[in-house]
């Protein structure tokens, strides 16, 4: 059974069809990278996977359960699916530690002491243990994004979604974030990510999905897909990002 099973999903905003019969499987431990032009529906698809957006047709199954914005136990589901955005979205009024432990302390009934240990643990995984008491405004963009990843990790997710998490960063800060994601991939985390970092997609992804106008136009292992694009759309896309 695939961890994520997207079956013929469609979604419209008003009369604009943003997802148009998308089907996609993500197996446990796989790294699936979604690429495609701006407006092709990548973010929307990602947001549908953790029920941030309602779908109009088709079905999304995660761990065998149908994902809906009104699904039962939506909050427990969200804890198992981490999502990281381009804009970090850390809570500015909380220290790094409290950003990470807010949800676990409120909803997983751990103590503040256990929370600190948990925060240290996930911060070590993103190389920021020394920033545990800093506030977001005192961190660089790359550091903030790594804290955002650590905050997801603290929930013990079974699946991680990344939406262009390096796009807002200065070029010299991109590497540190990608490295954290590579480590997670090596440790077997299942990940679906949207990225414009073609080098990263090529080396880390188990599968690349090329979206065009709300559809999956091509998918396959990176080496194959980049070497032999079958559609003119992918060919011109690859040419444009080189």
């Amino acid at each position: 059974m695939p961890l994520v099973d997207i079956r013929n999903v469609s979604k419209s905003y008003g009369s604009a069809r943003v997802l148009d019969g998308v089907s996609l499987e993500v197996n446990e431990g796989e790294i699936v990278t979604i690429i495609g032009k701006s407006g092709s529906g990548k973010s929307t698809l990602l947001r549908c996977i953790n029920a941030l957006e309602r779908i109009d047709g088709g079905e999304i199954l995660v761990e065998g359960r149908s994902v809906r914005t009104d699904m039962p136990k939506l909050r427990e589901f969200r804890q198992r699916v981490g999502i990281v955005f381009q804009a970090f979205n850390l809570f500015p009024h909380l220290t790094v530690e409290r950003n990470i432990t807010l949800a676990p302390v409120l909803n997983k009934r751990i103590t503040r002491g256990q929370g600190r240990a948990l925060a240290l643990d996930v911060l070590e995984r993103v190389g920021l243990a020394d920033k545990i008491d800093a506030y977001p405004a005192q961190l660089s963009g790359g550091q903030q994004q790594r804290v955002a990843i650590a905050r997801c990790l603290a929930m013990g997710p079974h699946l991680m979604l990344f939406d262009e998490v390096t796009s807002a960063l200065d070029p010299e800060l991109v590497g540190e974030v990608l490295k954290v994601m590579e480590d997670m991939a090596r440790q077997g985390m299942t990940m679906v990510l949207v990225t414009h970092e073609m080098g990263f997609a090529r080396t880390v992804a188990s599968k690349i999905v090329f979206m065009h106008r709300g559809r999956v136009r091509e998918e396959g292992p990176p080496a194959e897909l980049f070497a032999n694009p079958r559609t003119p759309e992918l060919r011109s896309f690859i040419a444009s990002v080189r």
């Binding site: 969200r78 979205n89 807010l102 949800a103």
Partner: peptide, 13 residues
Amino acid sequence: GSQMEAGQCLGLT
């Protein structure tokens, strides 16, 4: 709104 969304994504009520 992105702040609220981030909270929702962590499973907060």
